[in-house]
Design a protein around this nucleic acid. Structure first.
Lengths: 184, 184
DNA sequence: CCCAGCATGTAAGAGGTTACATGATTGC
DNA sequence: GCAATCATGTAACCTCTTACATGCTGGG
């Protein structure tokens, strides 16, 4: 049920079409929740039927028609209800950890390219978050901005942790690489 | 497909029954992958049919019969193949982040109990990991142990990050609490 | 005697991924 | 002309969760 509420939050921040939401869920909002356009359209339809959101069709003269959704009072009520309801903390599930333990039953050095890729991906994300931070969160922040910044900070924190951990893991994998050149 | 490989790794570490695997996936291995017994039995059946694992039935004289699974050569081949195959880095999806952004459209202070619960849960997990660290990973480590330790270290790192971030978020939520007592 | 633990499953449903489908416009 | 972007969906499939189902043993 969490995509529903992620969409409600996103629509409260800015009423949008499904297409716009999909783009935001691939970019800025993507750092706290991810979804494809297929999912988004389905959930929007369900929420519209439930009366949580209402659509206003904007006929495009040149561009295609857009259905712009906003959160209704009912939808806001549902959002408030959900915010108060306790979450069950999510279970970790990371395939990279499985691989690292699996390295004991294979040549550990074969995992190095994988870890390089992951390290690079996390470095890239971290750089992206730092850009967003500099662009959107310097100077005084109102309440909404401050909360968004705190979410971004989790991204900064976790990507940093990933980066450091990947480096550490790569050192370990190197140590087990029997084919390494000791003296070039 | 990742549960399959998590089970293969776990069975390489120690041949086990479905029940045993389920317990391990709720405890020690739970810190890198999580699964219920229903899932596990289904995947084991599928992998047995595919020839990745083989079962030996141990008739219990007093206890119930157990089907103890081990990884076959085919299964090891599949594991090696999977280890070499690149993973697509997983998308983040955290409902707590959604809630924090959603706090802008509700009374932020109402989120405090939720964040307390999460902070406590992460503190507890961290304490658990530290116990495992002290119990299983002090002194010299062989290759397999060293890899397991590196996985545990991700748990230590991430739970610490969570803890710090939760504290930070709670400070922020306190700041927006209009009903707080300024001078007792 | 009853509950906790051991041990193995089936079934329904929700959520998510991937592939397929359509049609218009803008820029190269 | 062709590719990319805007814009909205359907359908099949896989995974995961939740509920249900069964039966035996050991300890209090």
């Amino acid at each position: 049920m969490a995509l529903d509420h992620a969409l409600l939050v996103s629509l409260r921040e800015k009423p949008s079409s499904g297409y716009e939401l999909a783009r935001r869920f691939d970019r800025s909002i993507g750092y706290f929740w991810h979804a494809t356009h297929q999912q988004i359209y389905k959930v929007l339809a369900r929420m519209e039927e439930a009366g949580w959101v209402a659509a206003e069709v904007q006929a495009g003269e040149t561009a295609p028609d857009r259905k712009v959704f906003s959160v209704t009072a009912t939808g806001q009520g549902e959002l408030s209800r959900w915010l108060a309801e306790p979450l069950t903390p999510e279970a970790t599930r990371d395939a990279l950890m499985v691989k690292l333990r699996g390295a004991a039953f294979d040549d550990p050095a074969r995992l190095l390219p994988e870890f390089q890729r992951h390290r690079d991906a996390h470095a890239e994300r971290l750089a992206g978050y730092r850009q967003i931070e500099a662009r959107d969160f310097s100077g005084p922040l109102d309440r909404q901005r401050a909360l968004q910044y705190q979410v971004l900070k989790s991204g900064l924190r976790f990507e940093t942790a990933w980066l450091e951990w990947c480096e550490e893991a790569m050192d370990l994998l190197h140590r087990f690489d029997n084919n390494k050149e000791t003296n070039p």
